Simulated scan of single mutants.
Amino acid sequence: MKVAIAGAGAVGRSIARELLVNSHDVTLFERKADHIDPDSVPGAKWILADACELTKLEDAQLQTFDVMIAATGDDKANLVVSLLAKTEFAINRVVARVNDPRNEWLFGEDWGVDVAVSTPRLLASLVEEAVSVGDLVRLMTFRQGQANLVELTLPSNTPMAGKPVRKLELPRDVALVTILRGGRVIVPQNDDPIEGGDELIFIAPSEAEPALYDAMKITR
């Protein structure tokens, strides 16, 4: 994929390196000349420009990109970048960094954001996940409020133990995407059995979460 990243600070550069490892075409937008450092991200393209300026994005032909990542340390800038990317250039996927959790409510479709990533929220979710067997933990929201990435750790004595994935009666629009078991990451196949202690990762709309509890035989 062709990916644009607004903001070449520590976060933006780290994202770029990860994407380059996976053979994506990465372009970094940075408005401060002294932050331009091609040697820090070998293989990435660099553009000295403020990604909040429409003309600069036009010059870079942003409409040819598949993904825009707004990764600056300024929430206002990330919102402006997201809105321009979605409304002016019809970017298919816009991911935005949320620096201040109090602003998280803004990062939705109205501002062109498909996925909002809040580090404090993710860290809090990981803490909850570590201590909350039998609780549904929301890890991330997609398109704000329409679908969530959620985690459920089954108790060791779950009545679901031994049941194959194909026989899970999940609510409508809920999908099991990953099973974490010990040190393994399992892409679930129809005949894979569920075991006590499994960490199950689902994509689910908010309104389906209570039914998901019931389907997994969890007592709230």
Rank of each mutant, 00 (worst) to 15 (best):
V3W: 03
V3D: 01
A6T: 02
A6P: 03
G7S: 07
A8G: 07
A8P: 00
V11W: 09
R13I: 00
A16M: 05
L20S: 00
N22V: 00
S23R: 12
S23W: 02
H24L: 00
D25F: 01
D25M: 00
E30N: 04
R31E: 15
R31G: 04
K32R: 13
A33H: 06
I36R: 07
D37W: 00
D37P: 02
P38G: 01
D39L: 08
S40P: 03
P42Y: 02
P42I: 01
G43H: 00
A44K: 03
W46I: 07
W46D: 09
I47S: 03
L48H: 14
A49E: 11
C52M: 08
L54T: 14
T55V: 12
K56S: 13
L57Q: 13
D59E: 15
Q61C: 03
D66H: 09
V67Q: 08
M68D: 12
A70L: 03
T72M: 01
D74E: 13
D75Y: 09
K76S: 12
A77H: 15
N78W: 10
L79M: 15
S82M: 09
L83M: 15
L83C: 11
F89Q: 14
I91S: 09
N92C: 00
R93E: 13
V95K: 05
V95N: 05
V95E: 05
N99A: 08
P101L: 02
R102A: 15
N103C: 09
N103Y: 08
E104H: 13
W111I: 09
W111Y: 15
W111E: 05
W111A: 14
V113G: 11
V113P: 08
D114F: 11
A116N: 08
S118C: 11
T119C: 01
R121P: 02
L123T: 12
A124E: 14
L126W: 03
A130V: 00
A130M: 07
S132Y: 07
V133H: 05
G134A: 12
L139V: 10
T141G: 14
Q144V: 04
G145E: 00
Q146I: 14
A147S: 15
L149Y: 04
E151W: 01
L152R: 04
T153P: 09
P155T: 08
P155H: 04
P155M: 06
S156Y: 04
S156P: 03
N157H: 09
N157R: 04
P159Q: 03
A161N: 02
G162M: 03
V165S: 09
K167R: 15
L168T: 05
E169F: 08
E169A: 14
L170F: 06
P171S: 06
R172N: 12
D173P: 01
V174S: 07
V177Y: 08
L180T: 11
L180K: 11
R181N: 06
G182A: 05
G182H: 06
G183N: 14
G183F: 02
R184N: 13
V185G: 04
V185S: 11
V187W: 06
P188C: 07
D192I: 02
G196K: 00
G196M: 02
E199T: 15
L200F: 06
I201Y: 13
F202L: 09
F202W: 05
I203E: 04
I203Y: 02
A204V: 10
E207L: 13
E207D: 11
E207P: 04
A208H: 04
A215W: 02
M216K: 02
M216G: 09
R220H: 09
R220T: 08
